[in-house]
Amino acid sequence: MRVALFATCLTDTFFPETARAVVRLLERLGCSVEFPLDQTCCGQMHFNTGYREHSKPLARKYTDVFGDYDHVVAPSGSCAGMVREVHPTLGESPPRTFELAEFLVDVLGVTDVGAWFPHRVTYHPTCHSLRMLGVGDKPLALLRAVKALDLVELPDSTHCCGFGGTFAVKNAETSTAMLADKMTSVLSTGAEVLSAGDNSCLMHIGGGLSRLRTGVRPVHLAEILASTEEDPWLATR
């Protein structure tokens, strides 16, 4: 299956290991992955901050870049949600865009992707993957099938972590108060790894966990699913 990877600007720039993991994972599952180099950003930051007009040409560009693909996969529920739910309101007819977990489960029909990840992990379902896309339990089903992974339930998992894009700086104190509670939940699990399907939320929670030197490491779902016994995930950062 021919699949286009929409890396998202954040992952492309700050978390290349996540995008590389998506490539490795999808190729292992028999997909032919392409990365159109003309891609940039879905326009979510502009749209959500009130700069609707600036987001329009970016939505346009997305359609232009990915329009020929039957399947576009993004390692982000938030950006996939922007494309699917918002781009049509900006006058676009975007190509079918999936968040990674829903692509694996719904399109490829797999839950056991042959991964191996010998760590204690807790999972935060990000708000947009949960409520815009309705990804539900799919990421957890994928994680449960990972060999050697010790999955611990995150208390109050569906509560927002407080990222919210520019909310994190415009209402930084409220964002931090939400972050504090999320970190408390994460720490209560005793997990060594916090996973999620969005690097934006992971950057926020991970930034707090790092500031407090908790030792808990944020790892995108793609990196866990890409990890195998032969080619295991390594803590590179």
Partner: peptide, 27 residues
Amino acid sequence: PGSKWTASRDVPAPPSESFRAWWRKNR
């Protein structure tokens, strides 16, 4: 305004190579 972020959160250091740079080099 980055201080609004770093008041409570660290920022990961940007990697030396973006994903697209890696892709171009390897693929």
